[in-house]
Write a protein that binds this DNA or RNA. Structure first.
Lengths: 234, 234
DNA sequence: TAAATTAACGTATCAATTACATTTATTATA
DNA sequence: TATAATAAATGTAATTGATACGTTAATTTA
């Protein structure tokens, strides 16, 4: 028998463990967040990060992957633990801690039909409505995390399509850091990392001239990740 | 009535939440770890990080602070969440996730009598015995974390006594990074951060000449933390 | 007063970051 | 078919920060 959220019946003397996922996408120069309506009482129907209780027989990370797949159809996306929200009184009615995760997904690849069916929506990161419990704080914390992380890991690659242009990558970094970057220095820095492969194709959607598409070299990228490089940009 | 660990009786259909703390100290040039003997079944008596179940009515962070105080007598020490260890089968017999923390303490300040009474011991970080469950992994992960963190936060200050010398601080960084550093460049870099206050006292325990003691400027330090500086050392 | 010991200091070289302006490829339209 | 419009692509000089390296200074003990 498949267990669904509705099968949980809340006992006051139990500790519940949930996971909530801050799902980031990037589209048209803007960083976006996917949210849906809370499926459990109390506060059912309020805007909420995409989350679920962790079942007794599954790993915490599996719970996060399960719910991400359920809502977006996506598997094997970049997802990492953010931190635990564990104050005693955070969820009214029963004791529940939440282990927040954040995911970076390619916004072109999710299952639109599924997302719609679950009433989930993408919001510009600057227009996120009030969320249930401390979920807005989770979003803040996740943003701070990716800002820091972008300094030593090339986060861009999880959020962009497989083929992308350097100006596109720059706009992503500009969205993350909320500031304009110098195109010449940005290009120089990115290329100096030596993880991009220039393709013989151009993307002409944003200019007459067109910008060359790049993909990135997964094996070099992995090595770079392990060695912990420095990608500070001003 | 005070609840103790013994009062928990384990039910198979419950989710348990524990917290385990990787407690680092620094003494005589060596990074050290505090561990004790596990107090719950199964595997009671095995070497273990210092931890406890999280009680229904307390925050996760409070549980960590409670157990740290119980064993060392210390309060208000630097403690931060490491990450959650949440696989379904990690603890034999029942479902329990653990939210690991790490703490940096001044090794001169803990309550020796208390530590002894609880059968806790300091081990050199290179001589840590086999620990219960995946606790050795937690130690590895915590070490990796402080190594990374030391690049943008001056972790030294949590581990050294209030008054310390620059060579002492250097030995701490050498212990964390497991490599020799250049004394001139280290001093230059540390002083350039502008968070040290030179005192009119010397520590003569390690040389005839004696080294000047420093304390550090808490308000400048705080500002520095917020701005997220760069403290890479080669 | 000589010997021993660690602390303290400065500089020149190299590498990385920053600031900044022009030309190029292409398409649409006059 | 020539021209206008647009974003992409490129280079260099100046500045800043990181690295490598050897000598002198302060103090205690013998």
């Amino acid at each position: 028998m498949k267990i669904t959220e509705k099968d949980y019946y809340i006992q006051e003397d139990k500790m519940y463990v949930a996971t909530d996922c801050v799902i980031f996408g990037f589209d048209e120069g803007n960083l976006k967040l996917l949210i849906f309506k809370r499926r459990v009482k109390p506060l059912m129907g309020t805007w909420s990060l995409i989350g679920s209780f962790v079942r007794l027989q599954e790993d915490v990370s599996e719970a996060a992957e399960r719910v991400l797949k359920e809502i977006t159809g996506l598997e094997n996306v970049f997802m990492e633990e953010l931190k635990t929200y564990g104050t005693a009184n955070r969820d009214p009615g029963y004791r529940c801690i939440s282990i927040a995760q954040y995911a970076l997904i390619r916004i072109g690849e999710y299952d639109k039909e599924l997302v719609e069916r679950h009433g989930a929506h993408w919001y510009d990161i600057d227009d996120v409505p009030n969320l249930v419990l401390e979920h807005n704080q989770m979003v803040e914390d996740a943003l701070a995390r990716i800002r820091r992380k972008a300094r030593y890991k090339p986060i861009g690659f999880e959020l962009l399509p497989q083929k992308f242009t350097i100006p596109q990558l720059q706009r992503l970094y500009e969205a993350v850091y909320q500031k304009k970057l110098d195109a010449r220095n940005f290009r120089k820095k990115v290329l100096s990392l030596n993880v991009l492969i220039k393709l013989d194709e151009k993307d002409k959607s944003t200019s007459r001239r067109g910008a060359f598409l790049y993909k990135f070299d997964k094996s070099k990228y992995k090595k770079l990740q392990e060695s912990g490089f420095n990608f500070e940009i001003s």
